[in-house]
């Protein structure tokens, strides 16, 4: 069945309905979910990974995990945050592998290559934030993104990044300070 089929109304239905249905094994609903959230996941992966060639792989892997684990999601209306978390874990695995293969203690990650539409981003504040984010070190940027974008608690960040809660707390504060200082002219 075509998910866009007017009679089904599936693509207009809420996440609670679509994700619940996909959890039950409905491929059409899964497709609607992918169409709805894949751009958000790609944007998010791009910020965490700061390397374009791995972004699509990570997004794809995340959807495979999502298909398998959807039945365990208790509240399907929370699927968006849940997808972010699935994606973060996949992306962080990549970052870890990268780090393992490098002799350098502190990897200097190139600034996230902006998407074409972002190149013409008019708002200087957003470009300022993008630049400031690129200057954070890997861990700080991840902590900040997990907190501000994915809405993780300190404990969740600590668990996923293998850090202590107090380290997370410190990193987040330093990340915020660095960004604000870097953007001092912005307000």
């Amino acid at each position: 069945m075509d998910p866009q089929d007017p009679d089904r109304g599936l693509s207009a239905a809420s996440d609670a309905i679509v994700a619940g249905r996909a959890a039950d094994g409905d491929l059409d609903a899964f497709e609607v979910l992918v169409r709805r959230h894949a751009p958000m996941m790609r944007a998010y992966a791009r910020r965490i990974l700061a390397a374009t060639d791995e972004v699509d792989d990570v997004v794809q892997e995340s959807w495979m995990v999502a298909w398998k684990q959807l039945p365990e999601l208790n509240d399907p209306s929370k699927v968006r945050g849940w997808l972010m978390r699935v994606l973060s874990r996949k992306a962080l695995d990549r970052v870890r592998v990268r780090r393992y293969h490098s002799d350098i203690t502190q990897i200097e990650v190139a600034s996230p290559r902006p998407a074409p539409a972002q190149l013409v981003e008019q708002q200087s504040a957003l470009s300022g934030l993008t630049a400031a984010l690129a200057e954070l070190d890997d861990n700080q940027r991840q902590v900040w993104i997990l907190r501000e974008w994915a809405g993780y608690s300190y404990d969740e960040i600590a668990a996923d990044l293998n850090l202590s809660r107090s380290t997370v707390r410190g990193m987040l504060a330093r990340a915020r300070k660095k960004i604000v200082d870097r953007m001092e002219g912005w307000r």
């Binding site: 751009p39 790609r42 998010y44 981003e121 708002q123 504040a125 957003l126 934030l129 915020r176």
Partner: peptide, 19 residues
């Protein structure tokens, strides 16, 4: 900064939707 973070997330997602 937190508000701006939200705006950036939205702008990024919008940009990705176009791509």
């Amino acid at each position: 900064l937190r508000d701006l973070a939200e705006q950036l997330a939205e702008a990024d997602t919008e940009a990705e939707k176009e791509r």
